[in-house]
Structures are given as C-alpha cells and as structure tokens.
Design a protein around this nucleic acid. Structure first.
Lengths: 226, 226
DNA sequence: TGACTCTTTATGTCTGCACATAATAGCAAT
DNA sequence: ATTGCTATTATGTGCAGACATAAAGAGTCA
C-alpha cells in the first residue's frame, strides 16, 4: 500500500462500508501512515483529495471526520460550443445575427453592476444546419477594448473571448423557460416551447467582462458525472 | 516566493498577461524551481493545481503548456432539497404521494442497466406551502434492501438515502421540458409549462442504487460560480 | 520505408524530515 | 461563571533527494 491512490481508495471503501461511519473522526495522519506503511505526506495527499471532494471534513487540531451530509459537489466542463458540437460528430456553423454598440437594458446593467454602452452581439450556432444555441451577449468595452475593432463575422465571440479576454471569476445560472417570440423564430421553434437557458457573467478583478445568455432548443441536455 | 499558492498566483498572472501565451510551453519544473527559489515539489504542486483547473496541460516528457482552450470547469453542489429550501428562509414540507414495488419501465431499466422489481416512490417537496420539487424515484432493492422496510411517510427518500445508501459514482443530467399532465397537476401548473428537470443515477461499485427524476416549476434556477 | 528498440528527459510520486499555523483544552486571573 | 492567556496537537506546507513512468526522439534492423 504505497500509492496515495490506493490509500485514497481504501479510505473510500471504509467510508462506503461504514467501517468509518458518517460524522465519526478517523485516525490521525500519523497513525494512518503507520498502518499503511507509508509517509505521512502520502496519507495527507489522499486525505486532501477526499476533503476537496467533500467526502471528509478536516480541521486543524480537531482532526478529520467523515462528512455527515456528503455535500458532494459535481463538476461540469464549460466547453466551447464548437467543440461541444464537433464532439458529437456534427458539422458546426456560426452566424452573426446582429452587432451593435448600445446602452444595456436595466437587467444587464444590474447583473454586471455597471451602466454605459456595451457591445451587443446576437448570434446563432448550428449543428448539422439545425439551430443548436442562440447566443445573446453583452461585452464591456472598458475591459475588452479590442472587441470594438473585431467584426465577429467569422469567429464567434465565444472563441474570440477565450483567446482575448481572461477572466478571474464567473457566475453561472441554468433554468428552464418558455421561448420568447423572437427566440422561437431564431431557433425555428413554436412560440412558448420549453428552452434550456444558461447564463454566464464573467469578471476580471472585479470589473465585468461579459454577460451572455445561451438558449438551447428542447432536446438539449447538460450532463456531468462524479 | 516560498508558498505554492504564491507560485500558483504568479503563474496565473503570467498566463493572464500573456507573458505565457496560450499554447506555449512553459519552463520545466526544475527551472521554475530555480527561478522561484523553491523546491521542485512546490512548483509541482502549483502546476498540478493549475492542470486540474484546466489552465495548463501537462504531459510527461512533453512538458507543460498553457491550455489553448481553457476548458474551465465549474463545480456545483448537490444539496439536500430541504437544506436548499431552508437556506432561502422558507418553510420546508414533504409529502409522499405513492410508494409501490413494481417492475421498472423500459426507460428506467435502460438507465440503470438492470431489470426486475424496484421500489418506486413519488413525492413532493414544498417551500412555504408551494410545490418546489416533484421527485420520482426508483430504488434498487438489491443494493438497498433496508429501503423495503422503510415507509418514507415522514422522511424523504432523499435524506434517507444519504444516510443509508453510499454510492461511488453518479450521473447527472439537466434539461428543460414541458410538464406532463400529471406533473403539471402535482406542481399546480398549467399543462405544458416549461419545467427544469434534473436526473440523477447513482451506483455503488457498478451496481445501480437509485434513479431519480426531479422536476422544478418555472422560476427555479440552478446557480454556481467559479 | 517502416517497424522496432533504446535512450533521454520531464513529469509523477514517495520518503523523511522540518517548521508553520490554527484550534482546542486547560489553567489562571478577574 | 466569564474572560483571556498558553501549551498542546493535528493538519498544512516546505525541502531535498530518490525512483517510477510515460513519451519523444534517435538509432537499428529488416
């Protein structure tokens, strides 16, 4: 039992089988190191990973205990739409619908905590010719001045921003909604159809970078596993 | 510059400022260790964390390079419904709608990779008296035999399973859908309303534990940040 | 040319040791 | 009993050195 992976797995097994019950304190690192015949650093690494995954809770001096409510957290990746589509073996196409510099509506201002003029882009991502995602984006020119000189006719703001606008924080939200008249028309759906809406706001050091609303037609599924 | 955190931050800065451009290979661990005046292990830890976050890509022998497409990944927590509701300051209530042991429909069997009889529970979670989440759950009695002796009249399967049925793997999916007639009735919505549907399948060492479909009325938002 | 083996090298991981830090528990003073 | 200091202790992190492993690249042979 040398590898921290093996140790981690053994610990997971003990927790799963309730040999280490929820809420119970488990032996100290030193003791476990002795038991597994490894260095304390190795046990530490295994425990740190378990703690990061939310399986155990650790506090200095207090020791390590099995999480009472395994507030497991799942991760999901935020891929580029293009990659997402191409990964399914479909043909990707992009179309810019509109590009304007204009003051943002109240809702956008509130979300970004900023008023003034923004670059407003509306575009459509297609998979095998069918609408896959409608993108409605506001870019803060103060954070990304070079965006104003980009036409976005060929490259989607999604990809352009990834290459040109680093961010330090992002807020995500997901919801179900009924398609508005214009969204339904763009996506080729009957009005009022149930659409999956993802919203993402990014910031760089406190300053807003971009706010985007992504609308997917029915059939879209966001998946992840743990 | 001793701490791996400081080193990590400095590296993030260099990437954000394009001092280390996307796609470029960055200096080897040994060299960086010399530059930062630290041990290689410390640089290694910083780089490992960056790699896990998707900021850089590492391959043995090939070296470390700044990720071309920062496939950032976000995490979201999977709380107990009760905690979710109480965290909003609302009053939580639970109601069991039905409890039956019966063969699962084809769709469920396919998802769990198993046929036979399951414990089928349907219940409703309310926030301040209003429907918050409709839960439609199938439990595999082979993996959780004690579930058959539990009435679930008072405690929701959600909470009971957390305490009694460990799992090692989980698949999640999220989508928008139109409420079926029965779902609409249960949630007190007009038929065809857009609902947010979360589905979760859990397994313990390859054997299916439970499959649950959670339906939320409009207004529900799944949030996370990074 | 192409398939194979060998060497080289960067990352991956472990060890043993040391010191830092946070948090508890006990003691002391009020 | 309450407050505040202090010693103790488990975890957090650092270092130097070692070996493991994967993969690229060179060299070899058919």
């Amino acid at each position: 039992m040398a590898s921290f992976r093996a140790i981690k797995e053994e610990m997971e097994r003990r927790i799963a089988t309730r040999q280490w019950a929820p809420g119970a304190t488990i032996p100290a690192e030193e003791e476990l190191a002795r038991e597994f015949g490894s260095a304390r650093a190795t046990v530490n690494r295994a425990l740190q990973e378990l703690a990061r995954a939310g399986v155990v809770e650790r506090k200095r001096k207090a020791g390590t205990r099995v999480a009472l409510h395994p507030v497991r957290e799942a991760r999901f990746v935020i891929p580029l739409v293009r990659q997402e589509i191409e990964a399914e073996g479909a043909d990707y196409r992009y179309a810019l619908l509109s590009r304007r510099v204009e003051p943002a509506p109240e809702l956008v201002r509130a979300r970004l905590g900023l008023s003034g003029e923004f670059l407003h882009l509306r575009c459509l991502h297609l998979a095998d010719g069918a609408p896959y995602q409608f993108e409605d984006r506001w870019i803060n020119p103060a954070s990304v001045p070079t965006a104003l000189t980009e036409s976005f006719a060929e490259i989607s703001p999604n990809e352009w921003l990834v290459q040109n606008a680093p961010f330090s924080r992002a807020d995500f939200s997901f919801r179900a909604a009924r398609a508005s008249a214009s969204e339904a028309e763009i996506l080729g759906l009957p009005a009022g159809e149930a659409v999956f809406v993802a919203e993402r706001a990014t910031f760089i050091g406190g300053a807003p970078v971009t706010l985007v609303r992504l609308v997917h037609p029915p059939g879209y599924v966001l998946r992840t596993s743990l």
